[in-house]
Amino acid sequence: MDQKYENLDNQILYAGVLKFLANSGLVLLFLTFFVYMLEIVEPLVPLEELPQYWNLPLHEFLEKTGAPTGWQWVNFLNKGDYLNFLGLVFFIGATGVCYAVLFFDFLWKKKGMYLFLVGTELIFIILAASNLLKVGH
């Protein structure tokens, strides 16, 4: 085979890490939703009161319910609705973890161009996840 047309050798590694994280996230998501729906753990916003809030614009919803933003949800893990965020974070965080694996793999193999591209993407993901970026008022 012509060397030029080879795929990246870490594509299979990426697929494996992604599969593990996506499957773990899915299991966690459905388990925590089950806990939420049965109100085994008391939610921040009671389920029967949700219809009063779910049609509100985001800023009003946050004001009226006292719902957390950014990483403050970690302090609300004793609430049934925010317990679901554990599974959601697995889903949203999966690509970041895969990119971190790729970054170190490219660093080890000294592949400069991919290191730059993957490193830049990783910076965007970390910035977005960090809650350092804010929308203006």
Partner: peptide, 20 residues
């Protein structure tokens, strides 16, 4: 979608009762 999803997530625009 990961970067945009983090923005919505951090701004609080996620309701598990809709998403799951």
């Amino acid at each position: 979608d990961t970067t945009a999803a983090w923005i919505y997530f951090n701004q609080g625009a996620v309701l598990p009762i809709i998403i799951i």
